[in-house]
């Protein structure tokens, strides 16, 4: 895809653990060949439960972790093995906002200094120019100049996350990776941060790789959704299409497990699917389809690796893609 601002091809990340103890080292299969493309200005969501590899993917893209194999392409350039100055230049294009604004901001640095840090690192502007730019960034994220000389402890969680966003925007990136950006915030504050991200996307045309475990949120704000399970993307589809009809049994179960704030939901025919068992260990990946052990449609063939089928404009990693009588998620 040529219009992609970020592309990941067959990314594999293995961690080796257990070296310190006795016995053979064990391999954690965090990413098992993930591919995705982020188009300019779109929101692509990555959903899945703990351990599915979604945050590892973010860290690999940011080159905070080296990938075991595979390719990361930013604006047409392979950055998988860059280092030093060329890597720094790339990081200007791809920035990240983390989940916890309490630990991602330095408690001893004022808000102005925190936001000016990337500007100083990239030697953008002089001291006075930077201060003006910080002020503009603060206004852009809905905080005024009054916040410049405050410390993180004077700010609420939502305000801190706005600061983290302003810092990420300082170098004018084309891609912002949002790793659970509202999960640590109170429900009533989440909407403000989400609305800010949406407004910024309209104004600046940034693309978001939006990592979240909150399917309810993601189906509202994403253009496309990739569902991950044990290091693999099991379904990739337009958000609206996926919401209407999930095609992978795991997607179906994820939608069905999501509690809804509506006590009448069950009387309106919403069916609960409670998955049995838990996510298998990423150390001993089961052979064949990794979801088979919890799947209610499991057949003998599922012991074999399922194909990544292209069907109705989406990708589904299931032997029976398109043939299963799925619950609608709505």
């Amino acid at each position: 895809m040529s219009d992609a601002v970020l592309e990941v091809r067959d990314l594999v990340k293995h961690y080796v653990t257990g070296r310190a103890g006795f016995g053979a080292p064990q391999i954690v299969h965090a990413l098992e060949g993930v591919s995705l493309a982020l188009r300019a200005g779109e929101t692509h969501a990555l959903v899945g439960e703990s351990g599915c590899g979604k945050s590892t993917l973010a860290r690999c893209i940011m080159r905070l972790e080296p990938a075991t194999s595979g390719t990361i392409v930013v604006a047409g350039r392979d950055i998988t093995h860059l280092s030093g100055r060329p890597l720094r230049e790339v990081r200007k294009r791809v920035q990240i906002v983390f989940q916890d604004p309490y630990s991602s901001l330095n408690p001893r640095r004022t808000i102005a200094k925190t936001i000016a840090d990337p500007l100083r690192l990239y030697a953008i502007g002089d001291r006075k120019g930077r201060r003006a730019r910080v002020e503009a960034l603060l206004r852009r994220v809905g905080l005024g100049a009054a916040f410049m000389d405050r410390l993180p402890r004077d700010l609420s969680g939502g305000q801190r996350q706005r600061v983290a966003i302003a810092r990420a925007l300082a170098v004018e990136p084309q891609v912002l990776i949002c790793d659970e950006p509202v999960s640590a915030l109170d429900v009533s504050v989440q909407a403000q941060v989400i609305n800010l991200l949406k407004r910024l996307q309209r104004e600046l045309g940034i693309a978001y790789l939006f990592i979240s475990h909150n399917l309810g949120l993601v189906q509202q704000i994403a253009d496309r959704i990739s569902v991950m399970y044990l290091g693999r993307v099991v379904e990739l589809a337009n958000a609206a299409a996926m919401r209407k009809r999930p095609m992978h049994p795991y997607t179906e179960a994820l939608f069905a497990a999501m509690p809804v704030a509506d006590p009448e939901a069950t009387t309106r025919g919403r069916r609960r699917i409670v998955l049995s068992g838990e996510v298998p260990s990423a150390i001993d990946l089961p052979p064949g389809c990794s979801f088979a052990s919890r799947c209610r449609y499991r057949q003998e063939i599922c012991g074999r690796e399922p194909p990544f089928k292209q069907i109705e404009g989406r990708l589904v990693r299931c032997h029976f893609a398109g043939q299963l009588p799925m619950n609608d998620a709505g």
Partner: peptide, 17 residues
Amino acid sequence: ASRIELSAEGYLAEIPE
């Protein structure tokens, strides 16, 4: 806020902090 529904303009309902 818990029902997460977009307005016609594409935004979520928010309350000030």
